[in-house]
Lab assay of single mutants.
Amino acid sequence: MSHKQIYYSDKYDDEEFEYRHVMLPKDIAKLVPKTHLMSESEWRNLGVQQSQGWVHYMIHEPEPHILLFRRPLPKKPKK
């Protein structure tokens, strides 16, 4: 599979999560399941490479070739 064609967005966040999206080329996108969110082993098997802790959290129906990921931000110590 062509890992060079996978595009990784910059990371962005809110108060709770860090987010990123990953755009897959058409040949890989056709392998994305339409019935469920992928486990880490499933998206890694497609060639997506990112650190541990990312969760495929949403399917964007109009653009199924874009995978939406998030992971919890580290808890800030209370002052």
Rank of each mutant, 00 (worst) to 15 (best):
M1L: 09
M1K: 14
M1I: 15
M1A: 13
M1C: 12
S2Q: 15
S2K: 15
S2M: 15
H3Y: 14
H3T: 10
H3M: 12
K4R: 11
K4G: 05
K4T: 13
Q5A: 15
Q5G: 15
Q5K: 15
I6K: 07
I6Q: 05
I6T: 06
Y7P: 00
Y7V: 15
Y7E: 12
Y8C: 07
Y8A: 04
Y8G: 04
Y8D: 08
S9T: 09
S9C: 10
S9P: 10
D10F: 00
D10N: 09
D10E: 15
K11M: 12
K11R: 09
Y12L: 01
Y12E: 03
Y12A: 08
Y12K: 10
Y12I: 03
Y12V: 04
D13I: 15
D13C: 15
D14A: 05
D14H: 03
D14K: 00
D14Q: 05
D14R: 05
D14I: 08
E15I: 06
E15V: 06
E15A: 11
E16W: 10
E16T: 14
E16C: 14
E16K: 13
E16V: 14
F17S: 05
F17C: 02
F17N: 00
F17H: 10
F17P: 06
F17Q: 05
F17M: 00
F17A: 01
E18F: 01
E18V: 02
E18N: 02
E18D: 03
Y19K: 01
Y19V: 00
Y19M: 01
Y19P: 01
Y19D: 03
Y19W: 03
R20H: 07
R20W: 02
R20L: 04
R20K: 13
H21S: 15
H21D: 14
V22H: 02
V22S: 03
V22F: 01
V22N: 03
M23L: 14
M23K: 11
M23T: 13
M23A: 11
L24E: 00
L24K: 01
L24G: 05
L24A: 01
P25A: 04
P25V: 03
P25S: 09
K26N: 14
K26I: 09
D27E: 10
D27A: 09
D27F: 13
D27P: 09
D27N: 11
D27R: 08
I28G: 03
I28F: 07
I28L: 15
A29G: 08
A29I: 03
K30H: 12
K30P: 06
K30C: 09
K30W: 05
K30Q: 08
L31T: 05
L31A: 08
L31V: 06
L31S: 07
V32E: 02
V32N: 09
V32L: 04
P33G: 03
P33F: 00
P33C: 04
K34Q: 08
K34D: 06
K34E: 08
T35Y: 12
T35E: 12
T35Q: 12
T35A: 10
T35D: 14
H36Q: 07
H36D: 03
H36S: 05
L37H: 00
L37F: 00
L37E: 03
M38N: 01
M38T: 03
M38P: 05
S39C: 10
S39L: 06
S39H: 09
S39Q: 10
E40H: 04
E40V: 05
E40L: 04
S41N: 13
S41P: 13
S41A: 14
S41H: 13
E42A: 03
E42G: 03
E42Y: 00
E42D: 02
E42K: 00
W43C: 06
W43F: 05
R44V: 03
R44D: 04
R44P: 00
R44Q: 07
R44F: 08
R44Y: 00
N45E: 13
N45H: 11
L46C: 00
L46F: 08
L46T: 04
G47Q: 00
G47K: 00
G47H: 00
V48I: 15
V48E: 01
V48W: 01
V48L: 07
Q49S: 12
Q49M: 09
Q49T: 10
Q49V: 12
Q50E: 02
Q50M: 15
Q50K: 01
Q50Y: 02
S51W: 02
S51R: 05
S51C: 07
Q52Y: 08
Q52L: 06
Q52K: 14
Q52A: 14
W54P: 00
W54M: 00
W54K: 00
W54I: 00
W54T: 04
V55L: 03
V55M: 07
V55S: 08
V55H: 06
V55Q: 14
V55K: 10
V55A: 07
H56M: 01
Y57L: 03
Y57E: 04
M58P: 03
M58T: 09
M58S: 11
M58G: 13
M58D: 10
M58V: 06
M58Y: 07
I59S: 11
I59K: 09
I59P: 06
H60Y: 12
H60E: 04
H60A: 08
H60D: 06
E61D: 10
E61W: 06
E61M: 07
E61Y: 09
E61V: 08
E61R: 11
E61T: 09
E61A: 10
E61C: 05
P62I: 13
P62H: 15
P62K: 15
E63A: 10
E63G: 07
P64N: 09
P64Y: 05
P64L: 04
P64F: 01
P64D: 09
P64G: 07
P64E: 08
H65A: 08
I66Q: 04
I66S: 03
L67Y: 04
L67N: 05
L67G: 03
L67F: 03
L68W: 11
L68Y: 15
L68I: 10
L68V: 07
L68D: 04
L68H: 11
L68T: 15
L68M: 11
F69R: 03
F69Q: 02
F69M: 01
F69G: 02
F69V: 03
R70G: 02
R71C: 02
R71S: 02
R71V: 02
R71P: 00
P72M: 07
P72D: 05
P72F: 03
P72R: 10
L73E: 04
L73A: 07
L73H: 09
P74C: 11
P74G: 11
K75W: 08
K75P: 13
K75C: 11
K75M: 11
K75H: 12
K76T: 11
K76E: 13
K76R: 13
K76D: 14
P77Q: 11
P77L: 13
P77D: 12
K78T: 13
K78I: 12
K78C: 12
K79G: 12
K79R: 12
K79C: 13
K79W: 09
K79S: 12
